[in-house]
Design a binder for these strands. Structure first.
Length: 563
RNA sequence: UGACCCAUGGUGUAACGGUAGCACAACAGAUUUUGGUUCUGUUUGUUAAGGUUCGAAUCCUUAUGGGUCAACCA
């Protein structure tokens, strides 16, 4: 009894899983089949990641299959570049569609025949109205529509006209094919929706073969049916489309896929509208779809987010029907959680000030053995050269330190990570700028890391880089792209007004320990005490390596200071 | 002023008529050669009003609040 209850508690299902289990238990389906149906008109973003994890994840969980299907019914906005990027991103996230890569455009002939079938049944007609005329007759949500003057054309005439539409006899917009449903329906989508339009446009796969293209509502459901999709999962805004989805199944007598809607993902301080993201790219607010500040999958990859982090995030946010806005800090939590386990620890100084150890031999260099990752015993150690002159972080010294400052200041001692304890004796200051230019310390030879017999106890440990061994690197400090929680949610203000002017700070003169000289693009690091970083694409073929800040470390000291 | 949908701490999500739980966030402390990690603890919640019931977050009614729909986009 208790055992059963425990299992139940652990296995709490979301409402889609409940439906699937019912369908499996009742014998409605032996196997479930889902699909991920992107339109190749932009790059995938974090919202798509939710859908990918849902569709692939749920099929995996119940031993089913998932198709990758490109919903490519609008040649005007679609391209192969997007198709390729989508495939790369889904794969990178860790999902495999095997040989089931489909395109709605592969079904154009079948969809055409279905339209003919509808016409023959008196359920569709060719309308010559302009879009303005149609809109005028369509009414509003509260005012019923009026029938089009072309609504009662004969089957023969419709058949003839539709064929001639296909043959290219008419110009764009001259005619459309409409489903004949109910022009007075309270559901606007049922007021004789357009199902085919004329577009003399080059399609990325079918070329110039077609000049008429099916609309979403006349392509998606049928594609689901043709592929035997049992559960067609989509976002809430398609809820009102479901009656039309079911109408097509009914009238065409095709495989009855079931459409189920869930709430799309919203993340604060970001936007997930392809249109808005496209504008950021086109107007140069970012460097491209893969700019590390973009919430696109390729942007996050370049930023240093890991597939596991994104998958864990998608698992944790759950699936439900209510509007939501997830804290970006939850995503960052999962990024840190994963990176903490796998990122190699290294020392990099981004805002250097010289520290001179007055009692250390001038020419001496010691190789300090420092662990690569304290969270992973297998990761081993590396040697880091230590010498008389070091760079340390400017922030780690204060002329007049407050009480809880566990770093350097006149008379204060700190541990140099993996090396010795030093005590500050004096410092140099530029009288004009007031900037500290050098710090003089003495080291305690018997305090060497691992063989410390000094008995000294210091509160702080700081990172350092040996001046003569330092490798100059470029570091790009990324921060959130928007300063506003809901940048896209203001009626009176454009989201572009909320772009964070400090979303990227480039540091050209940072110094890294020697091990970073031979880094590879995409390698994950923790720069000790600074945050997680990844080697950027731009490092390729360059002597000076470039690193992107993925996310900062949690910083309780910064919090303390704010008080 | 039509149709459809939604409502649980700051955020997200569980509880399927029987003790409102989990994660993030926040706060406090312990540990720490990263002010990281880890560990411990604390605060905060069922939109409202009726009804059914021994018992309601859960079922019913109404109200309130929010979302979607008037592209030849998906």
């Amino acid at each position: 009894m208790t055992a059963v209850k425990e299992i139940k508690e652990k296995e709490s299902l979301n409402f889609i899983e409940e439906i699937i289990e019912q369908d499996l238990n009742s014998g409605k389906h032996q196997i479930i089949h889902t699909r991920f149906p992107p339109e190749p008109n932009g790059y995938l973003h974090i919202g798509h990641a939710k859908s990918i994890c849902l569709n692939f994840g749920i099929a995996q969980k119940y031993g089913g299959k998932t198709n990758l299907r490109f919903d490519d019914t609008n040649p005007t906005t679609e391209s192969v570049e997007y198709v390729e990027s989508i495939k790369r991103d889904v794969r990178w996230l860790g999902f495999d569609w095997e040989d089931r890569e489909y395109y709605a455009s592969d079904y154009f002939e079948q969809l055409y025949n279905m339209a003919v079938q509808l016409i023959k049944a008196g359920k569709a007609y060719v309308d010559d109205s302009t879009s303005e005329e149609m809109a005028a007759l369509k009414g509003t949500p509260t005012v019923p529509g009026q029938p089009s003057p072309y609504r009662d054309r004969s089957v023969e005439e419709n058949l003839d006209l539709f064929e001639r539409m296909r043959n290219g006899e008419f110009s764009d917009g001259a005619k459309v094919l409409r489903a004949k449903i109910d022009i007075t329906s309270p559901n606007m989508l049922l007021r004789d929706p357009v199902i085919y339009r004329i577009k003399h446009d080059h399609h990325h796969r079918t070329g110039d073969k077609w000049v008429i293209y099916p609309m979403y509502d006349f392509a998606h459901g049928q594609s689901d049916a043709l592929e035997g999709i049992t559960h067609s999962l989509c976002t809430l805004e398609f809820e009102n489309h479901r009656p039309l989805y079911d109408w097509c199944i009914q009238e065409l007598n095709i495989f009855p896929s079931r459409q189920i809607e869930f709430a799309r993902l919203n993340v604060n301080y970001t936007i997930t509208s392809k249109r808005k993201l496209l504008k950021l790219v086109q107007e140069g607010h970012v460097t491209g779809w893969d700019d590390p500040r973009m919430p696109t999958i390729s942007g996050m990859r370049r930023r240093g987010y890991t597939p596991a982090a994104i998958r864990n995030f998608c698992d944790r946010i759950g699936i439900a029907k209510r509007e939501n806005s997830i804290d970006i800090s939850l995503l960052e939590f999962f990024v840190r959680e994963d990176l903490n386990k796998i990122a190699t620890r290294v020392m990099v100084v981004i805002d250097p000030v010289k520290l001179i150890i007055t009692n250390y031999p001038d020419q001496q260099t010691e190789n300090m053995s420092i662990e690569n990752n304290p969270e992973d015993e297998q990761s081993g150690h590396r040697e880091v050269p230590f010498s008389k002159e070091l760079y340390i972080e400017y922030e780690d010294f204060m002329e007049e330190p407050p009480k809880k400052f566990f770093r350097l200041g006149p008379g204060l001692s700190v541990r140099l990570k993996g090396a010795y304890i030093v005590t500050c004796d004096s410092f140099e200051k530029d009288s004009k700028t007031g900037k500290i230019t050098a710090i003089h310390c003495t080291y305690h030879p018997n305090s060497k890391s691992g063989e410390d017999t000094s008995g000294m106890k210091v509160k702080g440990t700081i990172h350092w880089v040996s001046v003569k061994d330092a490798v100059p690197v470029e570091v790009r400090m990324y921060d959130r792209l928007f300063t506003e929680e809901n940048p896209g949610g203001h009626e009176d203000k454009d989201y572009l007004e909320f772009i964070n002017p400090d979303s990227l700070k480039i540091i050209k003169k940072a110094f890294a320990e020697p091990s970073l000289a031979k880094t590879k693009v995409g390698a994950y690091y923790q720069f000790l005490r600074l945050g997680y970083f990844v080697t950027d694409l731009d490092s390729k073929g360059r002597k000076k390596k470039v690193f992107n800040r993925t996310v900062t470390l949690k910083d309780t000291w910064a919090k303390e200071q704010k008080k």
